[in-house]
């Protein structure tokens, strides 16, 4: 596999397009987490006791950093990547140059990761303004968002390499993204759920990202967090070649 600095050219291509539509893009992705914050935090929160000694909204808000980042990265590397690959034939245009297909895919992964960071940071700013970020450890959420971005985009592009058509992305969101969204400990602690669900959740990247973002945002930092980082690094490394392989198979063989 030959991956060079040329991945940067692919990233810049997407970034140039993004700059044209960023405002509409950002607004859309930033309103939705606010809706959850309002509905769950203020609405449902009234009926919920404190969790870990914190009011519900304070406990729940850090998880939205992780979910906003996940949705942004997942949407970028499914629908948007698929549109570039299948309709605009952007991948074909790029691989007619010295940039190869592996570099195109890695460029897409990096761009999805950039969006994960961007949309995560927006939520950090918003919940900070609402007084929901008590700890300076929150700065370490940025590298966590980068890890989250890599994990989610690799999964998403893998799916994009497999799908027969654009309709099949529904399965990905219903079977992978939405369950992660609901069962990674964002809205409620998993302790009350059956052990099986807890075990399945442990195998989901978002579970570890939520552990990290919540602990760092609230300043409840301990060495166990390193296991979550390790989990993410292993996951990212283990599946890295899968999207590259599937894309080559799909477009060239």
């Amino acid at each position: 596999m030959r991956i060079s600095y040329r991945v940067w050219h692919v990233f810049m291509r997407n970034f140039t397009v993004f700059k044209k539509t960023w405002l509409a893009n950002v607004m859309f992705n930033f309103i939705e987490p606010l809706l959850y914050l309002g509905a769950m935090g203020f609405g449902l929160g009234v009926f919920v006791e404190d969790i870990d000694g914190l009011p519900y909204i304070n406990w729940m808000a850090p998880g939205l950093i992780a979910t906003s980042a996940m949705w942004a990265a997942a949407l970028e590397c499914t629908y948007d990547s698929y549109m570039r690959m299948n309709y605009q034939k952007t991948y074909h245009a790029i691989i007619a140059t010295p940039v190869n297909l592996e570099e195109v895919v890695v460029g897409e992964i990096l761009f999805g990761t950039f969006k994960s960071l961007l949309y995560g940071i927006i939520i950090i700013i918003v919940i900070s303004a609402l007084g929901l970020v008590p700890s300076p450890w929150v700065l370490l959420v940025l590298p966590v968002l980068a890890l989250e971005g890599l994990a989610v985009t690799e999964l998403s592009i893998t799916w994009t390499g497999l799908v027969p058509g654009v309709d099949a992305f529904g399965f990905f969101f219903t079977l992978v993204i939405t369950p992660m969204f609901l069962f990674s400990g964002v809205f409620f602690p998993l302790d009350g759920l059956p052990v099986l669900v807890q075990v399945i959740a442990w195998f989901m990247p978002l579970y570890h990202v939520v552990e990290l973002t919540r602990s760092l945002t609230l300043g409840t930092v301990g060495p166990s967090l390193l296991y979550d980082v390790l989990w993410l690094v292993v996951f990212i490394t283990a599946i890295f070649k899968l999207p590259l392989y599937l894309m080559r198979k799909r477009l060239i063989d």
């Binding site: 810049m12 140039t16 397009v17 605009q88 140059t97 010295p98 940039v99």
Partner: peptide, 27 residues
């Protein structure tokens, strides 16, 4: 090499000039 594909695969959201500049960067 210069390659002109059967179907146009320009970057539709970019301007004419940007299409050329972005493509030049790949080289």
């Amino acid at each position: 090499l210069g390659v002109v594909p059967q179907e146009d695969n320009l970057d539709p959201e970019l301007t004419v000039m940007q299409n050329l500049i972005i493509y030049a960067a790949y080289f």
